[in-house]
C-alpha cells in the first residue's frame, strides 16, 4: 500500500474521541451562569419545545412491532398506541401513579431486552454510555413530572425516551444485514 492510501486509511481509523487527563467539569460548572431568560418566558419555551419534540418524534417514530424480545410480555408501542394505563387494569392511572407505572413497565421491558441481547455482539462500543445518557434524560423528565405530574407533554416525552432506550439496545445488537 502506498503512503497516500495509507494516510487515507489511517485518517478513517482516527478515533473521534480522546479523554482529557483531568476532570474538566468542576471548572466548567464554576463558570456557568444562569441562562439569559426570564422564568415565565422559559416556561413558555419549555412547553413549546416539548410540543415540538412530540411532533417531530411522532413523525419519525418507526414501527416498533418487530423488536420486542420474546421474553418481554408486552409489545412496545408508539406513544399514540400506548394507553396511559397498566395492562389488566380498567381504571386509568393519573399523576404520580401513572409515572410510576410507566417507569416500572419500561424497566421490565428494558431488562428483558438486555437479557435477550447480552450474548449478541454490539455494533458500537459506546452504546452503554448512550444508554446511560438516555437514562439520565429519563431522570430529568421524571423529576420534572414530580413537579407537574399531569403534564401530558412531559408524559409523552418520558415514553419517547423509554422507546429510544429500547430502540438503541435493539439497534446496536442487530446485525447489519438485518437492518437493510
Amino acid at each position: 500500500m502506498d503512503s497516500k492510501s495509507r494516510l487515507s486509511k489511517l485518517l478513517k481509523q482516527l478515533p473521534t474521541e480522546k479523554a482529557p487527563e483531568r476532570d474538566l467539569w468542576q471548572g466548567i460548572e464554576l463558570g456557568l451562569e444562569p441562562p439569559e431568560r426570564s422564568v415565565s418566558k422559559g416556561r413558555l419555551l419549555w412547553l413549546g419545545s416539548a410540543a415540538a419534540l412530540i411532533l417531530s418524534v411522532g413523525l419519525i417514530t418507526p414501527p416498533w412491532v418487530s423488536f420486542t424480545p420474546e421474553s418481554a410480555q408486552s409489545p412496545v408501542q408508539s406513544p399514540a398506541q400506548q394507553p396511559f394505563e397498566p395492562r389488566g387494569n380498567t381504571e386509568p392511572l393519573l399523576g404520580n401513579a401513572l409515572v410510576s407505572s410507566l417507569s416500572k413497565q419500561h424497566t421490565a421491558q428494558l431488562n428483558a431486552l438486555l437479557t435477550t441481547m447480552q450474548s449478541m455482539p454490539a455494533l458500537t462500543q459506546n452504546w452503554q454510555q448512550q444508554l446511560t445518557d438516555l437514562r439520565q434524560a429519563e431522570t430529568v423528565i421524571t423529576r420534572a413530572l414530580k413537579q407537574d405530574p399531569n403534564n401530558t407533554a412531559l408524559l409523552q416525552m418520558l415514553q419517547n425516551v423509554h422507546q429510544q432506550q429500547l430502540f438503541l439496545v435493539k439497534r446496536v445488537h442487530t446485525p447489519q444485514w438485518q437492518r437493510i
Partner: peptide
C-alpha cells in the same frame, strides 16, 4: 455513528437551565 435522537430531551432541558441535563450532555 448511531443516529439515535437520544440527546433531544437533554438539550431541551439544558436550554431551560437544567445543569444536570447539561452535565449529561458534557459527559457524552
Amino acid at each position: 455513528a448511531v443516529p439515535v435522537r437520544y440527546d433531544e430531551p437533554l438539550v431541551r432541558a439544558a436550554q431551560q437551565g437544567d445543569r444536570q441535563a447539561y452535565h449529561a450532555l458534557y459527559k457524552h
